[in-house]
Design a protein around this nucleic acid. Sequence first.
DNA 1: ATAGTTCGTTCGCCGTAGGAAGGAAGTGTG
DNA 2: CACACTTCCTTCCTACGGCGAACGAACTAT
Lengths: 387, 387
Amino acid sequence: MTDVVTPPTSPVSRERSKEIKRSSVISAARSARVLSRAELTELTGLSPATLTPLVRDLIAEGYLIERGPGASRAGRPRAILEFNPRAELVAAVALEPARISCEIADSDGAVIAHRTVRRTGDIVDLICTAVPELAGDGLPALRGVAIAAPGVSTGGAVRLAPSVGLVEARPVGESVQRRLGVPVVVDNDVNLMAAGEHAAGAGTDVADLLLLHVADGIGAGLVLDGQVRRGSGGAAGEVGFLPLDPADRGHDGIGPFEARWSAGAIAERVVALAPGRRPAAPVRALVELAATDERAGAYLAEVLTAWARLIVSCACVIDPGRVLLSGAAADLDDAAVDRLQTLVSAGAPSPTEVRRAVLGDQAVLHGAVSYALSAAASGLSTLLPAP
Amino acid sequence: MTDVVTPPTSPVSRERSKEIKRSSVISAARSARVLSRAELTELTGLSPATLTPLVRDLIAEGYLIERGPGASRAGRPRAILEFNPRAELVAAVALEPARISCEIADSDGAVIAHRTVRRTGDIVDLICTAVPELAGDGLPALRGVAIAAPGVSTGGAVRLAPSVGLVEARPVGESVQRRLGVPVVVDNDVNLMAAGEHAAGAGTDVADLLLLHVADGIGAGLVLDGQVRRGSGGAAGEVGFLPLDPADRGHDGIGPFEARWSAGAIAERVVALAPGRRPAAPVRALVELAATDERAGAYLAEVLTAWARLIVSCACVIDPGRVLLSGAAADLDDAAVDRLQTLVSAGAPSPTEVRRAVLGDQAVLHGAVSYALSAAASGLSTLLPAP
DNA sequence: ATAGTTCGTTCGCCGTAGGAAGGAAGTGTG
DNA sequence: CACACTTCCTTCCTACGGCGAACGAACTAT
């Protein structure tokens, strides 16, 4: 301890390549859950000699837990290593008009803590106090925060953002990132759902998908080549604006298509068909009505035809291969989904599979987990310092 | 020199990081064209000591040429290094119904040799003899081959491929790759054009763009986040199939939109408006006619409206930010492009800039260059589109 | 000339990756 | 029960690449 003025040995690509090995081991362990060092050498291609100290570090940091020897089928048994999902926590914050909901999840997407708070004061303050409180002593393991805002996106399509009092999304993300010191992602809720279904739902087996979310408006989340694509202005997936019928007209930030075929628009027709309370789940109500009421059946067919044209349009432009129905569209029964599939197959230039999304309300959470984990990992995307 | 039995030292991440440095130097040199070692240290972040041997190698391999000392403004003058585009050659092969055209270009996209040959015998044989012949003694510098086929793409949308006698694109690419020993990419010509405009045309300044190519059919090439995206079945950009008007009907692999608004369809109307020979450039003819003929003006307005709806549809789905008009659509004059821009701005949910593509016939070639260079750079694996 | 400045190179240290070899912990077999 | 045999993991050691530092090279300014 004479002269600690020495930080020579520049930290360039040397440390980076170590980081890369580290994260490749972590991600192998994350997907295998339980494995031995021997399996790690196969999965990562690293030599045993390289792995030994690396695994030692990871155990010390809590990423891996040594579980003692496993069964052996001749020879020394493999020491079982178990991945500890709690080693990586993620916060998902959903902005809603009057409140924010905040969840802490581990890297399996299992919710560890959950809270909803009224919107008071500054959003950034609110988030920056709620998240650490909720994370408690797990805070050091926090790897990222994902903030979901309805219809956010830079540039166009802020139509829903005003409802949560957000004009610019970016400053919020940057502020939180600075205050909490972890990567923060702010994105459209529909994009997060798409990421969630891709990571842990009905799209784990494909690289491309489109999630069609029908609610008060209609929006789509787009995964291409394994990544959520937002387009140049963040308005990718604004399919409610598709001009599929010259007769339709949008207004005030409502697109022409969604003006007529969103859950809200359908609800009005359902009320007309079956007077009474406005149904909370209009599509489910419509499907039930259609079983007995001929006029409802005809209208359901109209809805399916319109949605099919929407899906075909998307297929023509980006050919997602798989389309997931979310929100009100997930309320269709099997028969209706089949009819939709038939209509889509007739019009799409390439095979396009239509099915329901499976994560429901959990989709945003899983998307947040996936974002946050890849954000933490991508810190080392470039081996070399930027130009 | 006793026992030179030692080639162990496994080629894992050690050599990779060297490769990365190498290619980062090459790409810096490629974009700067002329630079000194001192500039390389700034551009790449590598230390001078690391660069010295690396640059020596590159000079020996012909990538760089030392041009002697440059001007100095105090101190030792920088030794000028010039990037040698001839060090990296690329072959672009275009499949047409009756012939194939083959070009050798350097990494600037400058054509070094060109030949058109009649289609005789096996395509693979033809390519594998024509390319080496044309490359001549530059063959060792060949970094890749790009094969452009109209409407290829695996899965759906093989509508134009039969015209060149190709049912499956992949085997051709794989065979050529095996025979020539360099990376081979087979792709849709429109995708190649989009890549070309992105690399060297009207899209060098953006990460996302959509190239709308109007010919006998209508197709689009899609660049998102700097990469050409083909979709799950390779049918991304089949915008001719968009169902934008319930009245339109496609037939026999012709989409509903392109049946009515392609160059061929427009040509028929132009003939009706101004009897005579069927014009080779119907859109140009229409624009000229519209200056004097009122009916032609009305029809031009119709065409612009239809194309605008097409562009808006694409903007809603993927928000490319910039749309390039190619093929017959590039024949619009400035006034017509402005009108199109206005129509698009009125309907798109996000700012979308419409302009003409600039590379014309050279677009495919530049796309091929860009593909082949990135193929050589990323060294790894399947550059063939689609599973 | 001499000093000053900037470029490029050689030298040598250091850290890391991974090969080789050896210890550890089991299962089968005489 | 001893003794191979197999497989897993670790320790030792070497080769190699990156880069800091010092040095030589080339030119300007005074």
